[in-house]
């Protein structure tokens, strides 16, 4: 199962990454099959994300990250709380993702998590992250994990991590099993011509024109 972790922490080391790693380890530990985990540090992609917004196409490292997120069986997303919401970098990453492929996260199980200096912002999970991923048509697990500074020395955080990871694993198991063949295979030029072969249409799913012609009248 492919697990992708998106961490929007800015400092190194960051508590956001710390939480992300804890969530990833708990998820891998509970999974029935081997988990292939990839961690994406948005800090390293910050410039490419900004360029992606202005130029409309992703740089190579960002492209690889977007591909990984699109193909993931499950996603863990962790952002620091900035100005009472997710960080701008975190949002921009998903803006670029959605602009490239608005179906990229459709049906993908997502565990939402955030870190902050105080527990006063913990509802950011339900007031900012949950609607964002609902909009992206992801399936957000019921338990979100918020870690304020004080939580790292208090009871409760490990249990919340385990509960959220357990919920993510249940959804991922279903997704990984029921997942269809990848939607868009990259095309292969030079391949002998064969009708109906995926890849010969540039990797696009084709809606035959007769159907398109009929569409306005539906």
């Amino acid at each position: 199962m492919r697990l992708v972790v998106v961490s929007a922490g800015l400092s190194v080391p960051s508590s956001t990454r710390l939480l992300a790693d804890r969530l990833a380890a708990a998820t891998a530990g509970r999974a029935p099959a081997e988990v292939d985990t990839r961690v994406i540090e948005l800090r390293e992609l910050a410039v490419e994300i900004a360029h992606g917004l202005t130029s409309g196409f992703p740089g190579p490292a960002l492209e690889s990250a977007l591909d990984a997120v699109t193909e993931a069986d499950g996603l863990i997303v962790v952002t620091p709380v900035f100005s009472a919401s997710y960080s701008g970098l975190f949002k921009s990453f998903f803006d670029v993702l959605g602009a490239r492929d608005q179906e990229a996260l459709t049906g993908t199980p997502v565990l939402i998590a955030a870190t902050g200096g105080t527990a006063r912002h913990s509802l950011v999970l339900d007031h900012a992250l949950r609607p964002l991923f609902a909009h992206l048509r992801a399936v957000v697990v019921p338990t979100g994990v918020y870690a304020a500074s004080e939580d790292w020395g208090a009871e409760g955080l490990p249990e919340r991590i385990e509960r959220a990871a357990g919920e993510l694993v249940v959804l991922m198991t279903g997704t990984a099993a029921g997942r269809e063949a990848p939607r868009a295979e990259p095309g292969r030029p030079g391949e002998p011509e064969g009708a109906g072969k995926p890849g010969r249409n540039g990797g696009f799913t084709v809606v035959p024109f007769e159907e398109q012609l009929a569409a306005p009248h539906r």
Binding site: F57, P186, P189, G202, F204, F209
Partner: peptide, 29 residues
């Protein structure tokens, strides 16, 4: 691209802000 193909008309891909792979896919389609 499908519309152009259906009618046998031309297809123009204004590739100027796009990496080659994107153009390749659209033209191949």
């Amino acid at each position: 691209a499908e519309q152009a193909a259906y009618y046998g008309d031309g297809f123009f891909h204004n590739n100027i802000f796009w990496p080659p792979d994107h153009t390749r896919r659209m033209v191949e389609l």
